[in-house]
Amino acid sequence: MNDRPLFEYTLGLADDALVSAQRMGWWISRAPELEEDVAMANIGLDQVGQARSLLTYAGELEGEGRTEDDLAYLRDDREFRNVKLVERPMTDFGVAMARLLMFSTYQLHLYRALSAGSDATLSGIAAKAVKEVAYHVDHATHWVLRLGDGTDESHTRMQAALDAEWPYVDELFGSRAPSLAGRVVDPAELRDPALTDVRRVVGEATLTVPEVPTALGGGRQGLHTEHLGFLLAEMQHLHRSHPGATW
């Protein structure tokens, strides 16, 4: 099988999940409370699982025999197709929850549509993932409400987190390749319903949707922030230090 456009599309979904999981994993042992360590690990695990299924499928679509690990560990940053939203450092809990709200709401709409789509493999992966990300949305929503409508300090920090993440939301809704029309869901069509959901939570949390300029996209074409290189260096170094080894 060699289906380049669908390969690129699937890789985009896979890399979003993988890079997001990599950032989420950092929180395990660093969350604000032990119960939250457990919750964030669960979310990260769901994302790794999605990434593995999607990468495996991407490898099949490409038809060159690359496995999930070949794709995860042996590509450079210019070959990664994730959006910039998920790759930037995430060491503040407010940022983590703001980003999770945006990302998982997008994923929820996307996977819901994909699960009803014509590609049997993608729809199978999406049907499983939709339940997972529904929980992620729920988790992020509960925290954004509590931080937005908690103390003065948490309100300020949560608003700052929204302000910092909002410029990167737009990229989630970039159009799929024209040749994929009718085959997969077009993220551009998810913009309104997904952002309506996010805005509702932001409003309920007594926060404001920031009026900030949109950051330049490019992640889907392999044009990333400087942060991705470091993230991949850390993630890949051991695997790459032992070419051909089994783990």
């Binding site: 993988l18 994993g25 990434a51 051991l238 783990w247």
Partner: peptide, 17 residues
């Protein structure tokens, strides 16, 4: 963050959790 395969990464996250 450095687990050498995605399978190992998932197992390790579950374990630390």
């Amino acid at each position: 963050s450095r687990a050498p395969s995605l399978r190992r990464k998932a197992i390790l996250m579950a374990k630390v959790q």
